[in-house]
Every structure is written in C-alpha cells, then in structure tokens.
Deep mutational scan, measured.
Amino acid sequence: KYFGTAKARYDFCARDRSELSLKEGDIIKILNKKGQQGWWRGEIYGRVGWFPANYVEEDYS
C-alpha cells in the first residue's frame, strides 16, 4: 500500500543503503511520510528507501 506519488524536482544522491537516489523527473511511490523530520520513504524502479521530502512535488491528482 502506498500514499500516492511524487515527482522528483531535483537529483538526490543516496549517502547510504537506507536512502533512495532520485533523478529530476522520477516518479516515486510514497510508502511512508513519518520518517525523520522532512524525510519520506518511497519506492522507485524496485528500490525502497528514504528521501528528502523537499526534493519532490507531491502529485494530488
């Protein structure tokens, strides 16, 4: 189950295995919004990890 999707506004390079690298334009499935302050958990291309919420724009459609 996921909470919708978000589109990456910027590139983000994961610093460890718990984080999710993003490329601008990627569409991420949002799995959890209750991580550390400002971090969401998501899935993209079969990978799961945490990413900074301010790097994405949530899709409300």
Rank of each mutant, 00 (worst) to 15 (best):
Arg47Met: 07
Lys7Phe: 05
Tyr10Ser: 14
Ile44Lys: 09
Ala8Glu: 03
Asn32Glu: 15
Trp39Leu: 08
Tyr55His: 09
Gln36Trp: 11
Leu22Arg: 02
Glu57Tyr: 12
Arg47Trp: 01
Asn54Leu: 09
Asn54Tyr: 12
Ser21His: 09
Lys33Ile: 06
Ile30Asp: 02
Ser61His: 14
Gly42Val: 01
Phe51Leu: 02
Phe3Pro: 09
Arg9Glu: 04
Ile28Leu: 06
Pro52Ser: 00
Asp26Thr: 02
Tyr55Glu: 03
Lys34Met: 09
Tyr60Gly: 13
Ala53Ile: 08
Lys23Thr: 09
Gly38Cys: 03
Ala8His: 04
Phe3Val: 13
Tyr60Thr: 14
Arg15Glu: 04
Leu22Ser: 01
Lys29His: 12
Ala53Ser: 12
Lys34Pro: 11
Val56Tyr: 07
Asp16Val: 08
Ile27Glu: 11
Ala53Leu: 05
Lys34Ala: 13
Leu31Trp: 09
Asp26Val: 05
Ile44Glu: 00
Leu20Ala: 02
Lys33Cys: 03
Phe12Asn: 04
Phe51Asp: 00
Glu24Phe: 04
Gly42Glu: 02
Ile44Val: 14
Trp39Gln: 08
Thr5Gly: 03
Phe51Cys: 01
Gly25Tyr: 00
Arg47Thr: 08
Phe3Thr: 13
Gly38Glu: 06
Asp59Leu: 11
Arg15Ser: 07
Gln37Met: 12
Trp50Lys: 05
Ala14His: 05
Asp26Phe: 00
Trp40Ile: 07
Glu58Asn: 04
Tyr55Ile: 14
Lys7Asn: 02
Glu24Val: 14
Glu57Trp: 05
Asp26Met: 06
Ala8Lys: 00
Ala8Arg: 01
Asn54Ala: 14
Tyr45Cys: 13
Asp59Gly: 12
Thr5Met: 10
Asn54Pro: 08
Thr5Ser: 10
Lys7Pro: 00
Val48Gln: 15
Val48Glu: 13
Ser18Ile: 02
Glu19Leu: 04
Leu31Phe: 06
Ala53Phe: 06
Val56Ala: 10
Glu57Leu: 10
Tyr10Asp: 08
Gln36Tyr: 09
Trp50Val: 06
Ala14Val: 01
Gln37Asn: 12
Tyr2Cys: 09
Tyr2Thr: 11
Gln37Tyr: 14
Gly35Lys: 10
Ser18His: 12
Val56Gly: 05
Glu43Ala: 10
Trp39Ser: 04
Asp59Asn: 15
Asp11Asn: 15
Thr5Asp: 08
Trp50Glu: 04
Ile44His: 13
Tyr2Gly: 11
Arg9Ile: 08
Pro52Val: 02
Tyr60Gln: 12
Ile30Cys: 01
Ile44Met: 08
Ser61Lys: 10
Ala8Cys: 04
Thr5Leu: 12
Ser18Val: 04
Leu20Met: 03
Asn54Asp: 15
Trp39Val: 05
Gly42Cys: 01
Tyr2Met: 12
Ala6Leu: 01
Phe12Ser: 01
Ala6Tyr: 09
Asn54Ser: 13
Ser61Ile: 10
Leu20Asn: 03
Glu19Ser: 06
Gln37Ser: 14
Glu43Phe: 02
Leu31Gly: 02
Arg41His: 12
Gly4Met: 11
Glu24Tyr: 09
Val48Ala: 11
Trp39Arg: 09
Cys13Arg: 14
Arg15Phe: 02
Asn54Phe: 06
Lys29Cys: 06
Asn32Ser: 15
Phe3Trp: 11
Arg41Val: 07
Trp40Leu: 08
Gly49Asp: 00
Lys1His: 12
Tyr60Lys: 11
Asn32Lys: 09
Ser61Val: 10
Gly25Ile: 00
Ala6Arg: 01
Phe3Asn: 10
Phe12Pro: 00
Ile27Asn: 11
Lys1Ser: 10
Lys34His: 13
Asn32Gly: 12
Thr5Tyr: 13
Arg17Val: 13
Glu19His: 11
